[in-house]
Amino acid sequence: MSKFAIALLITVFGLSACGDKEGVVVYKQGSYSGKTDGKPWENAAFAGDKSKWDNSIRARGQNQNESKRIGD
């Protein structure tokens, strides 16, 4: 079954099974139709500074490398 066929089926199923859903959501196949999400650095901690965030993530990543802490 092609992906498209599945998608179709599901759409039908989805609509019929959820009669109590508010009718305002417009389903547009293939693109996200939910609420938008912010960037992880767009908050008080990073004040939009992406490189600061990148550095923080990289540093945390190295915490999982025990060789770094052990020094061998």
């Binding site: 992906k3 599945i6 998608a7 599901i10 759409t11 199923f13 989805g14 099974a17 959820c18 859903k21 959501v25 389903y27 547009k28 196949q29 293939g30 693109s31 996200y32 139709s33 939910g34 609420k35 999400d37 960037k39 992880p40």
Partner: peptide
Amino acid sequence: MAVCPVDCFYHTDEGVVLHDKDMCIGCGY
């Protein structure tokens, strides 16, 4: 993401796959 009938999934710029629970219909696909 490909099969979701209501398209509630999205990929963040960092490659994280998330979804909007307010849209999810719990269909299980």
